[in-house]
Design a protein around this nucleic acid. Structure first.
Lengths: 381, 381
DNA sequence: GCCTTTAGTCCATAATCTGTACATAATCCT
DNA sequence: AGGATTATGTACAGATTATGGACTAAAGGC
């Protein structure tokens, strides 16, 4: 609904390049003839568009012809992972991470650097991250890849290129610029983790990703794209009210989900999630009760979320993933009982498959997505 | 992300017609030259597109020229309310309603028919509504309008052309077809009321409309369009959990908002909202307490909604509108206290300006919107 | 081996937008 | 008043892009 611009000849071609590339991306390799069928364009036009895409190095002709029926076999055109790639970056509480992903969404490089970023100096950490990015890009280019964009995942709220507030890092209003000499974007960790799960976890196009970290966030994917709300702050599942007069939360409210299911509450005096899992496996009653309570609270908060957001499925990620066996029961019970009369079948509850890599992968994937959605702009065609 | 089709010459022109018409609609009358500036098209192209729109009767040249500066004055082109119109319909618990709205979003006709639709026979009510629609269309055409589409608002969940479930009417899986001999759509009452508030209430493009009827629903408008969720069931504010172990709700859950702030709870043994308002005005302590409690609950539920949906503003409509003076305090208190640390300024809380007409108007407006978004398709250009 | 079928390319044609030139109509300036 | 200036809207030739039918290529069926 923004001031939309008219379509001119060049934007018509740009759009058609995106349509063809999108069809190749969405439903695997296709022959030119199949692409013509899919897009409604003529074979001639498709041939011409594919020629441009070939030259840009974003697709390859898989010499392999497609047999099966009669007639001349076609040449399958598929995404090429050999030239164009993007960089994903992540700042988390206790590490920095980077990855390089090619156009086929194959992870080509993966670097993690432990760090203690709680209440840290932004300039210092960003300098550290800049170094990591540079090294990773250099390595990717040595392997023949052309890195053409980057994105950064942060545990906080973002506006434009500025990190507005990251309570667990202790950062406020940090402008992140000149991190790399490439087209660049920042986004919230939960949002990017949701996208990571979408693209690297082979998810259907509709789900709510619940990111259990120090804070509890959520990213809603509807029809393959992220719902962000008016100011980009949607998905703050951690502060959904579970018990209106419950214990105080750092947000100023009372009885928020985070109080019951945040990592700090779950771990108590334990120092890692694996320690907690060990306790749970050995049947420690206190650990079991904490988990049960967290699951209950999560069930209540997710009930509200399902009524408001109507997700197709719920994916538990972050620290909730290893705890899934102990959380699933209480969460599903709460959801099932509360949703029974309103829906024929409540959204399925499943565990994340991308694990702790979700956010960095999502960051790299977001730029890949941008290339596929607007190849003419991203590649200068 | 659906199978998108290529752009051909005719769709390029169709798109440009929509772009020009959209610009006229969005920012008032413009001269051809101004439209060229706004759309990025050349004056020549704009002239040709405007000629088509003039011929279709959707715009007029307001002979009035625009003076002010030097140079030849331009001819302002504005939406025409004289030819094309749409029909809005509504089935509610105690009435049927219809309205005709022209392209300028001026209400040209408005009909209401009292009825007792609780636990009614769908076939009978639909027959009644068909009659109302026919009469209203006939009257509009007598006034020289061409009604080219219709939409129906219902208090329940909708899928395609089928009303899945309307608990307060007692309807399930009712297919609504052949109601009128026109392009037709059905949608949920809260969704359409939100759109009504958007288009007829001079709202900005981002807000959460809270529809207090027998049930409590909500419609979220982001960037001027409705957020519907995966299955079109988003916005069920009435079943957001306020007190996890509160009183049972008809949905199977406990402590839902509807239990505290639904119309039945608010009214108690009173038989109308005006009766309740009278009690409140006279300072009746029981009425005041009920309202206070409802406001509190609404504050809790809206806190969760703000964290999940991130609306730009909250509009209270339906029965909450007349009760606004008594609800505002408790709701705002709850929101303010709970959101203080998370946002610089919590979304403003305001009262609906369209009142009980919101849903019918939204229904008619939705079709108007469709014409403006796709004039070529809607008008056969 | 010939026919049928399907893939991909070539080229003339069609649709649409662009850009320059021009007629038109108002205000400004002397 | 009359000419200069400025801006609107239209005309026409030119550019860009897609179309459609003809044509070549390559495989399977009979």
């Amino acid at each position: 609904m923004v001031a939309s611009r008219g379509v001119r000849h060049d934007s018509m071609r740009a759009r058609n390049l995106a349509v063809v590339l999108g069809a190749i991306h969405r439903s695997g390799p296709h022959t030119r003839a199949a692409l013509a069928e899919l897009t409604g364009l003529t074979k001639t036009t498709v041939s011409s568009l594919v020629a441009d895409l070939l030259e840009a190095g974003v697709v390859t002709e898989r010499g392999a012809v497609r047999g099966g029926e009669r007639g001349r076999p076609g040449v399958a055109v598929s995404l090429s992972g050999h030239r164009v790639a993007t960089l994903g970056l992540e700042i988390n509480i206790d590490y920095l991470a980077a990855c390089v992903v090619d156009l086929t969404r194959t992870v080509r490089l993966r670097r993690t650097r432990p760090a203690d970023n709680r209440n840290s100096d932004p300039a210092h950490i960003l300098q550290e991250l800049r170094g990591l990015a540079k090294e990773t890009i250099a390595e990717a280019e040595a392997a023949g890849l052309r890195v053409i964009g980057a994105a950064l995942a942060v545990p906080g709220t973002v506006e434009g290129e500025t990190l507005r507030s990251a309570p667990h890092l202790g950062w406020r209003d940090v402008r992140v610029a000149d991190l790399v000499d490439l087209p660049f974007a920042i986004d919230n960790e939960a949002n990017l983790a949701a996208l990571g799960e979408l693209w690297f976890g082979a998810r259907e196009t509709d789900f709510l990703y619940v990111s259990g970290e120090i804070g509890v966030g959520a990213g809603l994917v509807v029809a393959g794209s992220l719902f962000r709300g008016t100011f980009g702050l949607a998905g703050e599942l951690g502060h959904v009210v579970v018990v209106p007069d419950g214990p105080a939360c750092r947000c100023g409210g009372r009885g928020c989900l985070e109080v019951y299911a945040g990592q700090d509450t779950l771990l108590g005096e334990l120092d890692s999630v694996s320690a907690l899992v060990a306790r749970l496996e050995s049947g420690d009653p206190r650990a079991l009760e904490t988990c049960e309570r967290a699951g209950h609270a999560l069930g209540v908060a997710l009930t509200s979320a399902v009524h408001l957001l109507d997700p197709g499925m719920i994916v538990l990620g972050g620290v909730f993933a290893p705890l899934f066996p102990w959380l699933e029961g209480p969460v599903a019970d709460g959801l099932g009982a509360r949703l029974a009369h309103m829906r024929d079948n409540p959204p399925a509850l499943v565990v994340s498959v991308t694990g702790p890599d979700a956010a960095v992968l999502g960051a790299a994937g977001m730029i890949i997505q941008r290339i596929i959605a607007e190849p003419a702009e991203a590649l200068g065609l």
